[in-house]
Amino acid sequence: MKKALYFALGTASALSIATSAVAAPTPAGTDVNNTATIGYATGGVTQANVLSNTATFKVDQKVNLTVAEVGGLVTPTSPGGSNFVTTFTVTNTSNATLDFALSAAQLTSGQTVAFGGTDSFDQTNVRIFVDSNNNGIYDAGVDVATYIDELAADATRTVFIVSDTPAGQADASLAGVVLTATAAAGGTTGTQGSALVQTVGADNPAAIDIVFADTAGKTDALRDGKFSADDTYKVIAPTLALVKSSKIISDPFNGTTNPKRIPGATVEYCIVATNTGAGAANNAIISDSLASVTGVTYQPNSIYTGVTVSSGTCNADGTLQTDAVDGDQSNFGSNTVTSNLGTISGGASSAIRFRVTIN
């Protein structure tokens, strides 16, 4: 007598896992249970199915993450300024909730920085803070956490590097900073977990093995449980040059026709302030003391501001200022010419002129 046999393999649980894998990774630690069924007939009569044992294994933990700079531009700073912010995101692309330890480092002088150029100085007072209210903006005194706590799989958190710029840095100087996130064990809210260690040796189907799947970032290596990205601080500062010149206006004998610099002659000083930097020079004040200049005497009410310049020489224009401290831009006191030029934008210049008599 012939017997007919047929097999039916797989279960609904296995099918559901395959379906969910399209949407999201199966969480680490998930028990995958699978049984097989054999059906058969004998003598033309279908017999009861025979079940296999249940084969069980745990889904291992795939550790992966990315760190990315936000904005795609340098962060402008000013010499001597504080609390300049660079912004990053940290994304948990693992299949488990994790903590992430955070560290900041600075590139060394000469290294290539993000967005081009080379590092030439270090920021000071470098700190790291996690965005507590998820608004993407650093809020001093609000964003105080220094590590990422319990970040779910496929979730992202914003992180800030906050630092100060030393005084005296030149315009266009660059400082590169690197944020590194290191995967750590999750599971306890309010406590930073320990750094994860990749499982070595053979697979253990009854345990949760750990596999690093991260790529190499700016300064970290392939499959090290870390990822890093960099950003750049750029100094935007004024660079002022001050040039003073003089020209003869008249003398008592020749008048204004080919005058000479003899006693009694009138000489005009021209002072030009030029900003060759990118940043604006605010509250720029020229101070010119004549106390130590022998042989000349200031001519009262001869200060002109807003003077234009041609070929480095003041033109005969501008606005006449009074010598008194009366709210206008300039004054004369204690044998000193003082003029507030206001703001000199990057690439711009401002000039004043005034006259003296040769004693």
Rank of each mutant, 00 (worst) to 15 (best):
A195P: 02
Y147R: 05
A183Q: 02
V113T: 00
E150N: 11
A152E: 02
Q106I: 07
D203W: 10
G110N: 09
L107Q: 12
T118W: 13
A105H: 07
S109P: 01
E150G: 09
Q123D: 09
A170T: 10
D119E: 12
V113K: 00
G193I: 03
N135C: 12
G176K: 07
G110E: 06
L174V: 01
T146R: 15
L179S: 05
A145W: 06
Q106P: 08
A195T: 14
F121Q: 01
S120K: 08
L179V: 08
L179C: 04
A195Q: 10
Q111K: 06
L151P: 00
A105R: 03
D154H: 10
S109Q: 11
L196E: 09
V144K: 15
G190S: 15
D139L: 13
T189I: 02
Q192P: 07
I137G: 12
A145V: 07
D139N: 15
R157W: 03
L151Y: 00
Q192Y: 08
A140V: 08
T158M: 05
V162H: 08
Q169C: 03
D139C: 13
S163K: 10
G201N: 14
A101I: 08
A170Y: 03
G168R: 07
S103H: 02
S132V: 14
G186L: 08
A195E: 08
R157V: 14
Q169P: 00
S163N: 10
A172H: 11
Q106R: 04
